[in-house]
Structures are given as structure tokens and as C-alpha cells.
Design a protein around this nucleic acid. Structure first.
Lengths: 332, 332
DNA sequence: CTGAAAGCGCTAACAG
DNA sequence: CTGTTAGCGCTTTCAG
């Protein structure tokens, strides 16, 4: 077994209460006793049992993080930042991967409550179906949605999609593009749908025909390939293709190359996410870099501050992405 | 507050002991009482407090996973599989990212012990410097090292590097390659050094000059670029370049293209890891696919079986990778 | 088979 | 400022 507070108390010749107070420093204790306790604790290698402490304090110093799929390159930097920032505050991370399944997600949230988490960070699987789980959670502990949100009345930390799309379109116009197309997923995840909505809203005054060049499928390379092939085959070929993900853009790049369409000469292409693919492909891809570490860090700051102040609602925040211009869109 | 066992007991008109026994099914209880208890529990939405249970049972049903950097594409699939398999057994995951820092790693391990974890999975930062932390951990709970190991006497689950290198060399010979080079990291992480050692051992009988064409730097694309440029500039240009990572191989591909060296015509190139880059680049990269999900799954199986059987040492395992042949090495 | 009672390790309330 | 005592919510003896 490990060393208990009882043993430290005996070694220092004081009560367990005094040991607890001396080590936590929450109440004034005779400096001499503090020294004696510290020394005994050190000598014995005492470390407080967080389970016992949690039961007594009714606070586990533990936060849950539920994400839909850690294999999605969006998440690792977020998870890393979350864990690091939590640790700065002495908190630990229970990580759950829902595997894009709403039922599993709900079960994970329940399980996290059994663990008596002090707060929850969640990036939901489904904009609609995940709502009950998020709202239930929010009624119990401070909850913050990250990037993908299901419940409008639960706080949220994400990337400003309006700003991102407007950066992309402004850049493309500067490069002389006049006719626009969009390739994205049909899937109901909130940032992606926002992306599409914003594209449509902002492109309308620039190009009335753009709404007719919206291709909705999934987020894969092969869908990008297929959709782009269609776009260049048809009449009214656009001179700019805005893609909702880098994967899609990569597929588009391939299709265009196969059709002997020059990028960026004939058509400019943009991706989204600035994943490792964007700089690896040829031509390198113009893309929006999302502030992923910052997203994780800000989420934890907001959550912990709500936990400490006993607020039920953390503060929402919207961070801005950055357009990374590379060869795929530079016509000048 | 949440519902306690006391409230369920009162509602069902029995003692808390009976509720505990009825719900856990560990002891025979009158079927009628079981039904009554179940119903009350259901009605009240009772869920056992895992903190209290852990304190009493001296088992948290929680496992720690320490990895050097979740941003490394090797880890997300492993983490995902680990979490999923743990959940199958009713266990939860405390995830820690050491940020490639041995001191942080050691602190994380101590912190996990404060949480009274039942077992530990660790992929160490440093083959040498991480040893004390791993051995300390292994003296307290079952520990399993994943992929990167520091302590030879602590069990290990990893990928068979001997087999992987021999698959690569066999394939390259089949393609008619006769003079070999190697580009890898200098860094002291165990699978990479094994890769190099095996390359040297297996290539010696094939090409005496190969040992002179070993370039050691880091794992980056730019190092691959630099090293490959050097290799083709010098005399005695090889007709095959074995790279320790896909990133390196990608850099090599670029350098070769800039030097007008044809791949695979003049030089065959292989990567390692079969990351998303391998299929995205042009020419597509021949690479070793590592069984990452399986690695996570097997690690958890071995660990939980040790925990359940109160063994201090889980069972080690060595899994085989698979050579994925793509354009970069196909000369026939 | 069931209930009463003890106790996991810690901290907070309460006296002194 | 310090010690005694109680109790967080649960499970497991120990009697009955």
C-alpha cells in the first residue's frame, strides 16, 4: 500500500487534521509544525489520495472531454492543449471518443457523471441528435461545447466561420476570380453547414450563378475528385473552387490535373483546416489555419473559471482563423 | 445533488447493503427484493458514485495512458482503440501528453498514482531517461509499454521492426535494387533505432557500401530533403532509399524531383508508417502500415487481464506491420 | 438471505 | 492554533 495521512501524522506527532491543514495551507498552522509535517511527508513520500479527497471535498479535480473521432486531425492539437492547460490548474483529463455515434456519446456523458467530473468539454457528433445529452450535462456541471455545437443555449468555443469564408472570398477576388464553386460535405456538423451558409450569403452579390455550383457529398478526397470532375466537365466552369476541407481540395486538385485544367492558372482552389496535406501537395494548397491549440486553451480557461466561481455557464468565445496563401490560389 | 444509494434503499424499503448487493449481483438476494430495488433505482435514476466505490473497493476502474505527443499521427488511432477497448471492460481512460519532456512525463506518472489508477499504459519519451519513471510505475501497478520502450524488464507491446525492414528490403530486391541508402532520425526513440540497426544488419550481405549511405538527422520533411539531395549529388548514388518515416520520404521525393532523378525509375523510395501523406503524394509512397488499432486493443487486453488476475506483469506482444506497395518503389 | 455497523483516506465543523 | 469527531457514498464483514 501507499503512505496515508495517518502515518505522516504519527511520524510528525500531530493529528491528521493538522497534516491536512499544514500541507494544503488553507488555514494558519504553527510554522514549526508545518516544517515538521512537511519533513515527515517528504521522508515518507506521502502523496494525498485524490479519490478520498474527492469524496470528501465533493470535487474530483477532473474534467471530461468527449470528441467524435480523435482520428480527425482537427482534434489532436485541441486535446493536447486541453490537457496541458488543465494540468496547469491541477486538473486531470478523462478522454472519451464517441466514434461518431450519438448513443455512445450519451453513454459516455453518463459515465463521466458517475466519475463525478467537475466540468465537461464536448465536441458533439451530431448537431441535432446530440442536443439532449449536452443539455442534460449542462444541468449538472459547467459544460462548454467545442467547435461543433448542438445546443444553442449552452456556451460554445469555436472558430469564426463567417470571418474565414470572407477571408477566402476576399483573397480570391483579389486574384481576379469571378465565378465560384463550393464542394463540401452534406453531413450535419455545425461548422461545415455554417461554412456553406456563409459561402452562399457572401458569394451571392459576386456571382449569381454560384448557388448552382454547390456540390454536397462527404468530406473525402474521392468526393472532392468526383465533384471537381463534374464542375469542369459541365458548362459554366468556375474560376475558383472553395472546398470545405483539405481532403476535398486534394481530390479536386487531382481531378483538375487529370482534366488538364491548370491550377491556379485556369482555376484557383482553396482548402480548409491547413492540415499537413495542404503543405505536402503540389501545388501547395491555400487554406484556413484554425487556431486549434488556442481553442483548447481558451476552452479550459473558460471552463475552469466557471468551475472556480461556481457559475453554471462558462463564457463563450469565437476565435479567428488565418488564411495561409499558397500556390493553389495565386494567380498574380 | 445526485441520487444516493440511501435514497434507493429507503424507496425500496431495504438496507443500503441490500441495494448494493442487488445491483451488483455479487451475492444471492431474494429475487423479489432484487426486482423492487431495481425498480426504485430505475425510477430515481440512481447511478453509483464511482469515487465512493473506488475508495471502498480500492480500485478505481481507471487506467492511465501517457504518450509523448498526441500530435504525432501514430498515436490517435492507438488512443482511440485503447479507449474503446477499455470501455468494453467498464474502465475509463486518464490521458496525459508529456510533450516529449521526460520531467513532465515523470510528474504525470506520479499524478496518475495519486488518482489510484489500476494500471498504466505508456509510450515513453526517451529510451534512456524515461526508465526510472517506468520502473517506479511497474513496482506499483501493472504497466505495459507501447511501441517506445525504456525498461527491458517491463512488458511491451509493439511492432516487429525486424520483420518490417525485411519486408522492405525483400521488396526492393525484387524490384531489382542493388545499392541502398537510409535516411532516419538521430533521436533516441527505440523503434527508430531498431529500424536503423535492422537495416544495417540486413543490408550488409546485399550491399557492402550501404553503411556509408546512412544519413541521420531528425524526422522532418526538410531533413529528408536535405539528406536525399546529398545522396544523389555524391558519387555512388544508390538505387533505393529507405526512409524511417513518411515525412522524411516526402522530403526525399521532393529533392529527387528537383534533381531530375526519376522515382521509381532511377531510385526507389520507401516510407514508414503509411500515414495519410503516403497515399496523398505523387508518386504515391510505398510504406509500412503499422497495426495501430490492434496495438491499442492488444495492449488493453493484456493489461486488463493482468489487473483482473492480480498479476504484476502483463503479457508482452509483438505485432507485424504490412508493406503497402505503391508507385514510389515499383520498377517492374 | 438480510440488516447493522465499520471503514476506505481524507477534510471540515466544532470545541477547546 | 490544534485535536477530536463526524461523515463524504459506497461495499463488506459480521451477526442474526
Amino acid at each position: 500500500m501507499t503512505v496515508t495521512i495517518r502515518e505522516v501524522a504519527d511520524a510528525a506527532g500531530v493529528s491528521t487534521a493538522t497534516v491536512s491543514r499544514a500541507l494544503s495551507g488553507v488555514q494558519t498552522v504553527d510554522p514549526e509544525l508545518v516544517a515538521r509535517v512537511r519533513q515527515s511527508a517528504e521522508a515518507l513520500g506521502y502523496r494525498a489520495n485524490r479519490v478520498a479527497r474527492a469524496l470528501r471535498r465533493q470535487s474530483t479535480q477532473t474534467v471530461g472531454l468527449v470528441i467524435p473521432d480523435i482520428t480527425n486531425p482537427f482534434f489532436p492539437p485541441v486535446v493536447q492543449a486541453v490537457e496541458k492547460e488543465l494540468r496547469r490548474g491541477g486538473l486531470s483529463l478523462l478522454l472519451c471518443d464517441a466514434g461518431d455515434d450519438v448513443d455512445i456519446e450519451a453513454e459516455l456523458v453518463r459515465n463521466l457523471f458517475d466519475h463525478q467530473i467537475d466540468g465537461l468539454l464536448i465536441s458533439v457528433c451530431d448537431r441535432v441528435a446530440s442536443k439532449p445529452a449536452v443539455e442534460l450535462a449542462a444541468s449538472r456541471v459547467p459544460v462548454l461545447q467545442i467547435d461543433q455545437r448542438a445546443a444553442a443555449d449552452v456556451p460554445y468555443v469555436g472558430v469564426d466561420q463567417v470571418d474565414a469564408i470572407s477571408q477566402i472570398l476576399a483573397h480570391l477576388r483579389e486574384q481576379g476570380c469571378q465565378s465560384f464553386a463550393y464542394i463540401g460535405p452534406r453531413q450535419e456538423i455545425s461548422p461545415a453547414t455554417e461554412r456553406l451558409d456563409e459561402f452562399l450569403a457572401q458569394v451571392a452579390p459576386l456571382d449569381a450563378a454560384a448557388a448552382g455550383r454547390v456540390c454536397l457529398g462527404d468530406s473525402s478526397l474521392s468526393w472532392g475528385h468526383q465533384a471537381a470532375a463534374q464542375l469542369v466537365d459541365g458548362s459554366g466552369r468556375p474560376d475558383a473552387i472553395v472546398c470545405a476541407t483539405d481532403q476535398i481540395a486534394l481530390g479536386a486538385l487531382r481531378a483538375l490535373s487529370e482534366h488538364r485544367v491548370k491550377v491556379p492558372g485556369d482555376v484557383a482552389v482553396t482548402g480548409f483546416g491547413d492540415t499537413v496535406l495542404a503543405s505536402a501537395c503540389d501545388p501547395a494548397l491555400t487554406s484556413i489555419r484554425q487556431p486549434l491549440e488556442e481553442l483548447g486553451t481558451e476552452a479550459v480557461k473558460a471552463l475552469t473559471s466557471a468551475i472556480e466561481q461556481h457559475l453554471s455557464q462558462p463564457q463563450s468565445a469565437l476565435l479567428k482563423g488565418e488564411l495561409i496563401v499558397r500556390a493553389s490560389s495565386q494567380r498574380k
